[in-house]
Write a protein that binds this DNA or RNA. Sequence first.
RNA 1: GGCCACGUGGCGGAGUGGUUACGCAGCGGAUUGCAAAUCCGUGUACCCCAGUUCGAUUCUGGGCGUGGCCUCCA
Length: 491
Amino acid sequence: MTSSNSPIQLYNTMSKSKQVFTPLDEKNVRMYVCGPTVYDHAHIGNARPAIVFDVLFRLLRHVYGENHVTYLRNITDVDDKINARAARDFPNLSLNEAIKKLTKTTEQQYQSDMSELGCLEPSGQPRATDHIAEMVTMIEELIAKGHAYEAEGHVLFAVKSYKQDDEVKYGRLARRSLDDMIAGARVEVAPYKRDPMDFVLWKPSDAGLPGWDSPWSKGRPGWHIECSAMSKKYLGEVFDIHGGGIDLSFPHHENELAQSCCANGTEEMAQIWMHNGFLQINGEKMSKSEGNFFTVDELLHTEKFGGQQWPGDVLRVAMLMKSYREPIDFSLGKLEEATKILARWKKSMADLGLSFTEETREEYAGFGPCSKMVAALSNDMNMAGVLAELHRHSKGDRLHNARRLFGSLKLLGVVTFDSMRAWEKIQNTDTTNIDTAPIEMAITSRLTALTEKNWAEADKIRDELAAEGIKLIDGKDPETGARTTTWEVVK
RNA sequence: GGCCACGUGGCGGAGUGGUUACGCAGCGGAUUGCAAAUCCGUGUACCCCAGUUCGAUUCUGGGCGUGGCCUCCA
């Protein structure tokens, strides 16, 4: 375990302030993040929480030890959007078969996308459909305690029952009173609801829709109950951090909070609620309903955005170039800047003396991050401060800087030993796969032309090589002062 | 309409009650025959109006603007 000289501080949506993070149990720091509903490919906005909380996961592991952090990210595989999409995409299959196929392939795509973006696999990724029994149990508890009621095969959570000292607590995360919510509500209220804001815990399924037996009906769970049931099972009734996109704060997290606290009889569900801001495109939210989105897969493997493919590490750096709580504008300029910065970081590590080979693997594994960078990261993941430290090391002139840069980038999940090794190989492969003799000859000819001050001939040779993608880099021998010329392949 | 967040130099993007963020671009210089690459240097910015203060971009109040949530949503 690495000792931390600056405590981790995190912004808590519940208290609307940054607070010092103290784990309930530092031998087992527990974090739950709402994961994907697997009905469609993840777009780059969906990747933001995955990346943001992956960085937090890595920081927690760094501070508390790799084996002392449990990070759970659920897979929602029961949902009306899934049913609709499955019926649309696989009309020839039975609905259940279609759903199985859709959720399975979508989940595989998600895992592969997140992995390419440098995200570690969470400690666990529970699926909703594997936990129907736990959900039913929790719903029964809620009914028994008077927090839920059955109506026409549905079970609803009674929002007004979540109170303390006659004060309704429902709405405390979103900081909204029930009256405000009802006034602004745009939903049609089902007649069997006791209160307009009551939400579904269980609903009946028609024949043909996925359904499970329950005391109330053959049906399926509402959206929010899965997170309450699964977080309880794996993380306990109260855990450390609950995260997700800002849009989930209401109603999803509000409802989870109410369910969990009422079912478990606890004051809190999580110590800290964290929410990442949205990704915007041209100043507006990227969303599937707006149609202004690019999937992770498209960015990685097609030229649909900006006419080129974007490597996972570039997307990751671009995503981390702004505070996680702020909206981030996804633009070509940002990706280009990230590309440039990342290339320079890699180059400076090599220039400062790092070489990624089997011989150095073990030694390099011991390189840790820059402590100032960890301090910045600990300050509610202040990426701007982190970037400044990375730039400082990148501009350094000692091997120490390269080690720190590597250690820091490794902690952020931007590079790994193997990714650097592959990068280094590409740098070399580009030059070894080419017949170098003609190039060397051309360079010699050019140097001769240069000594004769035959600029036209020298430039002609340079242009000819450039046309073949060979870029010449002139330098000066530090001792003799004579011109030296090296070359590289322009990709 | 209600709730919330934000408004910083050409752009991106931190932070602070009085002192350099950082990056990109630009500009100047070194180097060069010219380029490229590299290095060095360079920018008195903080939405508007009041208030608190010796002093506010930073705190308070009001205004304007942008975005989000209030319905599935990362």
